[in-house]
């Protein structure tokens, strides 16, 4: 077992998949010799060359469309969207084309493309370089959505995404790139739709992913000192979502808090809350609480940004509001 960063884990997954399958290639802006704005593809151009690591003009629709088109003929493109905010320039290719190809052709064709969306704030990156847009893609039938929170999961799930025959949106949080974690020497792909218990607990289930998962673990630590036992559930993939895993956790706790960086309104937490209210009602002992980004664009100044994004303290407050007095 080694300890490597989330960025290195993604880099390894890309390299290993390219080694495994000659059809896998990378396409994106500045991903070649420069190795990407966040260095995730560093060294891959030197190793695999121009034919496999394609630097493109700043043309999000064009490059994403080229990836999707190549996938229709058997290519396995992995697109890097340098900042997920820029995916809006490629939305036609992702949502109107790739997501619907299999369906609208009656299953005769599919677009097995992987789209890496660099997500969340990197700190003072403001309104057009910080968004967490996963809910938009979750809402588009035909896309699978993956949101890994640890280096090991990032490596395993990126392999899964690349091998998947459907288009997959793969969300990577900028502030996780330097986060370290243990990664086995040999990593096998993980199945989609299998969440994990990131921390066991008995009083409250706290669902979270990406950078917010770290904050949630911090909140759980604080709350443990107060006598509140929090179970942190990391779904790992948003579509498919591990409903059975969440239900099993709620059977233990009977309480649900959801935390994510994206704005609360219409966020992925709303979907989780609706699932719990609709299908786990008998298990719930109180209202579902969401601790999410405010319903604002992302501001620039650190104190403003800190207000908008839920941190461990705010998540802990959310949990306390639910357990109230005397749960412990």
């Amino acid at each position: 077992m080694r300890t490597i960063t989330y960025a290195a884990a993604i880099n390894e997954a890309l390299a290993e998949e390219m080694e495994r399958d000659g059809q896998v290639f990378l396409i994106g802006e500045d991903i070649g010799e420069s190795g990407g704005v966040f260095g995730v593809t560093r060294g891959l151009h030197a190793r695999f060359g121009d034919e496999r690591v394609l630097d493109t003009p700043i043309s999000e629709e064009g490059l994403t469309g080229a990836a999707v088109g190549a996938s229709l003929l058997g290519g396995r493109a992995v697109v890097e969207i340098m900042f997920s905010d820029f995916s809006m320039l490629a939305m036609d290719m992702i949502v109107n084309q790739a997501a619907k190809t299999h369906y609208m052709t009656g299953g005769r064709l599919s677009a097995p493309v992987t789209i890496r969306l660099v997500t969340g704030t990197a700190g003072a990156t403001a309104a057009q370089h910080s968004q967490s847009l996963e809910a938009w893609f979750v809402h588009a039938p035909g896309l699978k959505c993956v949101a890994p929170s640890t280096p090991a999961d990032a490596k395993a799930l990126l392999k899964t995404a690349i091998r998947d025959q459907d288009p997959v949106c793969f969300f990577e949080h900028k502030q996780l790139y330097n986060a370290k974690g243990e990664v086995p020497d040999e990593v096998e792909p993980l199945p989609l739709g299998v969440g994990r218990i990131a921390r066991e607990g008995t009083d409250v289930t706290l669902v979270s992913y990406l950078k917010t998962l770290q904050e949630s673990l911090g909140a759980a630590e604080t709350l443990a000192d107060e006598g509140v036992s929090v179970e942190v559930f990391d779904p790992r993939t948003l579509v498919p979502f591990d409903r059975d895993g969440l239900r099993a956790s709620l059977e233990k706790t009977g309480r649900l808090v959801i935390a994510h960086e994206a704005p609360q309104r219409g966020g992925f937490g709303a979907e989780v809350a609706a699932f719990a209210a609709g299908e786990c009602w008998d298990l719930l002992r109180g209202p579902v609480v969401r601790v999410c980004g405010t319903n604002t664009p992302m501001p620039y100044a650190p104190e403003l940004e800190g207000f908008v994004i839920p941190d461990a303290e705010r998540i802990a407050r959310g949990v306390r509001s639910l357990v109230g007095a005397g749960v412990a």
Binding site: A66, V68, G69, A70, S71, L72, L73, G75
Partner: peptide, 13 residues
């Protein structure tokens, strides 16, 4: 863009 990608795939292979 899809035809462009198809052309890319033809060329790559």
């Amino acid at each position: 863009p899809l035809a462009t990608g198809a052309g890319l795939q033809l060329k790559r292979t």
